[in-house]
Amino acid sequence: MSMSPRRRRQVFRVAGYVLFAAVLVAVAAAADWGRLSEAFFRLDVARSMFPDAITVALRNTIVYTLLAFVFGLTLGLVLALMRLSSILPYRWFATAYIELFRGLPALLVLFMVGYGVPLAFPDREIPGGVYGSVTVGLGLTAAAYMAETIRAGIQAVPKGQLEAARTLGMSHPRAMVSIILPQAFRIVIPPLTNEIILLTKDTSLVYVLGVTSTTIELTKFAGDSLNTRVNPTPLVVAGLLYLVITLPLSQLVRGLERRARKER
């Protein structure tokens, strides 16, 4: 029996829906709902985490993210400009830095800043305590990624923009500041927002620095609660709180990208 191509596409499409629904029903039927809710959705356990989950853990997660982001963005901008510089050693340094820190695990860098440097220089201290160590420890790695993003943004600004600025008598630095960078940053806002999302999740590594009850962030906080209550519900709560930060950001990226497409 022969089907028309259109008819065949319809059949395949309906079969796809049916298969998906069948798998869903099978999983739901097989699941032990009582055990699941007992383990992951204990309201009393969840309730006992508040308000500290928000006033301390979520707050610190956001603070660590912002500190590392500002540090990384500043250093990343400097590295991007060095990478594009006409001075050869600057280019070498920036390239070496970027390759190095993109190739190392963030956790290793954090260990280095949190334990390696204090061991080497016991008489000195990174200012700001844990906050300082996190800023530098996560920011160093973030800077390498952001430098590449910003460099790509600068190079995405049409060459004619620089030529027009120079033709009007602007010096190269002046043209960078007034004409190129403002347009480059517009281009890199979506990828930089993605960088914040990645940083938000990387703050979960901070626990290795030995945080206290005031400097604790979400993942460590959830881990502690899990230990005391012997119940995994805190992990679900922490997960939801991460999504409170990251979902609006990824919505923002999507919106910005949509707008950028329209302007093209």
Binding site: P158, G160, Q161, E163, A164, A165, T167, L168, G169, M170, R174, S178, I179, P182, Q183, R186
Partner: peptide, 27 residues
């Protein structure tokens, strides 16, 4: 020396008025 390009090269992040004033102000 004023220069006019084939591709115009107006500064996309600035309004028309700002395009005309920025070099006067900065240069």
């Amino acid at each position: 020396i004023g220069m006019v390009f084939q591709q115009f090269n107006l500064f996309g992040h600035l309004t028309v008025r700002e395009n005309v004033t920025i070099a006067q102000r900065r240069v």
